[in-house]
Simulated assay, not measured.
Amino acid sequence: MEVLETTEKEMMQKNVEEFARLQRYMRLSDKNSEAYAEMKDRYIDLKVILTASGINLTEFDKIKE
């Protein structure tokens, strides 16, 4: 059984894509909903991961919370 390794570049791309998708969902959701609260938790996780990876979110972050 072959183990596939995910490269750092692939992980970064995956996280950027997830961050963008999550922001779209958040913008469509009611800020007072349980779903929004769950999305916000993941948003914060991804924001920390991307910032630690050296990605500048200044222009990319549409939620800015």
Rank of each mutant, 00 (worst) to 15 (best):
E2W: 01
E2C: 00
V3L: 09
L4Y: 05
E5M: 04
E5I: 09
T6A: 01
T6W: 07
K9L: 11
M11H: 06
M11Q: 12
M12A: 12
M12R: 14
M12K: 14
Q13M: 07
Q13W: 01
V16F: 03
V16Y: 02
E18F: 03
A20G: 10
R21N: 14
R21M: 14
R21T: 09
R21Q: 14
L22A: 09
Q23K: 02
Q23I: 00
Q23E: 15
R24P: 10
Y25D: 15
Y25N: 13
M26E: 12
R27E: 15
R27H: 11
L28Y: 11
S29N: 09
S29Y: 03
D30M: 00
K31G: 10
K31D: 15
K31S: 14
N32T: 07
S33C: 04
E34A: 08
A35M: 06
Y36G: 08
Y36M: 03
A37Q: 11
A37P: 05
A37N: 10
E38G: 12
M39N: 13
M39R: 02
K40S: 13
D41Q: 12
R42P: 01
R42A: 04
R42H: 12
R42C: 04
R42D: 08
Y43T: 01
Y43C: 03
Y43A: 02
D45I: 01
D45V: 04
D45L: 04
L46Q: 04
L46I: 00
L46K: 01
L46A: 04
K47H: 07
K47L: 10
K47N: 09
V48T: 11
I49W: 04
L50E: 09
L50A: 07
L50G: 04
L50S: 06
T51S: 15
A52P: 14
S53T: 05
S53Q: 15
S53N: 15
S53L: 13
G54C: 05
G54D: 13
I55F: 13
N56Q: 14
L57C: 07
T58F: 09
T58K: 07
E59Q: 06
E59N: 15
F60I: 10
D61Q: 01
D61V: 00
D61I: 00
D61Y: 00
D61A: 01
